[in-house]
Design a protein around this nucleic acid. Structure first.
Length: 597
DNA sequence: ATTAGGG
DNA sequence: CCCTAAT
């Protein structure tokens, strides 16, 4: 294993990209620990996970840069090297970028044909997906665009690279914002209510100071940030304001919730997309091309008013209107009185009760003190693994655990967190680019399928292998993948058009290319979104946002929409004529999953 | 096979 | 995310 080291990972430029500038986001640094003899190790196994995760998930907007402190001695700056990955190919950064781009191009070429056909073929049901994907994709745009941006991107890449290396401060990982800075909070966020007025009219993010950006961020997402990375802030805010993750790399000027690119006289898909996205997340094109029956049924209701809704609300959709709508809807929306499906105690629950109680616990619930008393002895052994010679002479690591009073050996696992096997990292270290290999294979496998709906959103085009941490047949937990803004948007769109509950439909239509998102995932995520959106209102009214921003914030407007949808959904069938929100908010409602109407 | 809910 | 009862 020679000398690999590095830790910069250049992720593919994907088509997706919604980021027409994957640039800044694609460079990732991983932290390594330098041993005495000069060898480098991942700082922690988690680092490996992180890196891999980044490889898989193209939607990480964060620079994953960390500094390590856990070796006792001081580490010279050089030790934490951000060397380029000169691994196998010895590609320089720009070279690999262009290489990636060229693969992208070829991919586009491959796919453009089927895509074109698809678009023309009115009977293809995957059209919807194609267009949904367009939220995040610019694949439709010509190759020239790719070419044109090629240079810009490379430049941007270098710039940001240098910048982050230079200042050090900007290297701070946004995720860790909570820890990064405390001083700013006190002075910046004197008022507990975000100043939404900042977001009115035309916003020149580029001309804002970091502090102003932070304020804007707060107004957008409802929480503070101490991230000082301007680019990150700008992108984040732009995403939030436009309800899109389709943020160009260039100037960040936002007007009426659209990105305005100044450097581009003629606006390209950015603005187009942004306008389609906001307010009415359903791209207009979707209405143009015929779709499958299932979709048509829901489509039928919207075509006419969709456009006007779009126009109406596109200019209105400001923080104010949103707040208004919040207030309005606040009184209306009481608990949706939907009869919940009742559920019997699960089998497991029953078994657990019947199996363990009679043994020693005698069916009594232990008081906490008794529990600690009882488990005291085993709790120690639990904390450290014990090695046991197995039947085949293999050494297996187990820990002792007590079940119903018995001490048993169970496979030792970290209780705190599941971690990926370290061997992954070794493969990683060896430059065995299994990932890309798999990806290629996968890509090939699904290319046919994806070709139908065109632009495989690369964020979804990851191999399934990555979705599951499988270890020799054992059922491992699915690798956690944070939901990206794009995915959330797609989900919201899907719910808007198909209704909450049609998870498999939504999955098929909007998430066809996301092999790792199951319909259950969608359902779960929607549930979380609902919680978030309702929590939002309560926190807005009184208490501050006490929730720690562990996960990336979901733009308030999106949460609003979620709630609107939820309310509409709960009201469907009750009264469709007396909707107070009809003028502005209801734009979203194209759905009638109730079947009537 | 999907959906809903609890964990 | 996982698990599993309900449908």
């Amino acid at each position: 294993m020679g000398t690999l080291v590095d830790t910069e990972i250049n992720r593919d430029y994907n088509a997706d990209s919604s980021s027409s500038n994957p640039v800044a986001d694609t460079v990732v640094y991983q932290l390594v620990r330098v041993e005495d003899d000069g060898r480098l190790f991942p700082a922690t196994v988690d680092e490996v996970m992180k890196a891999e995760h980044l490889l898989e998930d193209d939607k990480n907007e964060l620079f994953q840069v960390e500094t390590t402190t856990h070796t006792g001695k001081q580490i010279p700056d050089e030790s934490i090297s951000f060397k380029k990955c000169e691994s196998s190919e010895g590609l320089s950064q720009s070279e690999s970028s262009t290489a990636d781009l060229s693969t992208l191009k070829s991919k586009v070429q491959e796919e453009s044909l089927p895509l074109a056909q698809t678009l023309n073929d009115s009977s293809k049901k995957e059209d919807v997906d194609t267009q949904l994907n367009d939220h995040c994709n610019h694949m439709n745009s010509s190759m020239e665009k790719v070419n044109r941006e090629d240079n810009a991107q490379s430049r941007g890449l270098n710039d940001s690279h240098i910048a982050s290396l230079g200042s050090g401060e900007t290297c701070l990982e946004p995720v860790n914002e909570a820890v990064t800075n405390g001083s700013l909070d006190s002075e910046t966020c004197s008022s507990s209510i975000p100043d939404f007025s900042i977001l009115k009219g035309e916003i020149h993010l580029d001309s804002l100071t970091i502090r102003e950006l932070q304020e804007a961020f707060r107004a957008t997402f409802g929480r503070r940030t101490s991230v000082k990375d301007k680019l990150w802030l700008k992108r984040r805010i732009a995403m939030g304001l436009t309800n899109s993750c389709d943020i160009p790399s260039g100037n960040f000027t936002i007007k009426d919730n659209k990105i305005v690119r100044k450097d581009d006289a003629k606006e390209l898909p950015c603005s187009l997309q942004a306008s389609n996205l906001e307010a009415v997340p359903l791209p207009t094109e979707q209405l143009v091309s015929p779709i499958d029956d299932t979709y048509q049924s829901s489509q039928r209701f919207s075509p006419a008013n969709q456009e006007e809704d779009q126009q109406q609300s596109s200019c209105k959709r400001n923080r104010e209107t949103i707040l208004e709508c919040d207030v309005k809807s606040a009184d209306i929306s009481e608990e949706p009185c939907v009869a919940k499906r009742v559920r019997k105690p699960t089998k497991r629950y029953i078994e657990e009760l019947s199996e363990f109680e009679p043994r020693e616990c005698t069916g009594k619930v232990f008081t906490p003190s008794r529990i600690s008393e009882q488990c005291h002895s085993s709790s120690k052994s639990r904390s450290r693994p014990t090695h046991v010679i197995g039947l085949q002479g293999k050494t297996s690591v187990t820990r002792q655990d007590s079940l119903g009073g018995f001490t048993v050996h169970v496979p030792y696992v970290c209780r705190v967190r599941r971690q990926r096997p370290r061997k992954c990292f070794i493969a990683f270290m060896n430059f065995v680019d299994l990932e890309s290999e798999k990806r290629d294979r996968e890509h090939f496998d699904i290319s046919e399928r994806d070709a139908q709906h065109g632009l495989a959103d690369n964020s979804g085009d990851n191999s399934d292998d990555n979705a599951y941490t499988k270890l020799e047949g054992s059922n491992k937990r699915k690798h956690h993948r944070a939901w990206t803004l794009c995915e959330v948007l797609k989900l919201v769109d899907g719910v808007a058009r198909l209704g909450a509950g049609k998870w498999s439909e939504i999955k098929r239509i909007a998430f066809a290319s996301y092999t790792y998102r199951t319909s259950v995932d969608l359902k779960d995520k929607w549930r979380n979104l609902l919680r978030a959106s309702f929590a939002l209102r309560t926190t807005e009214k009184g208490a501050k946002i006490s929730r720690k921003p562990s996960s990336l914030p979901i733009p308030i407007p999106i949460l609003m929409r979620v709630r609107e949808l939820a309310e509409m959904h709960s009201k469907t069938g009750i009264d469709f004529t007396t909707r107070t929100l009809s003028d502005e908010g209801s734009t979203v409602l194209k759905e009638n999953d109730t079947g009537f109407l």
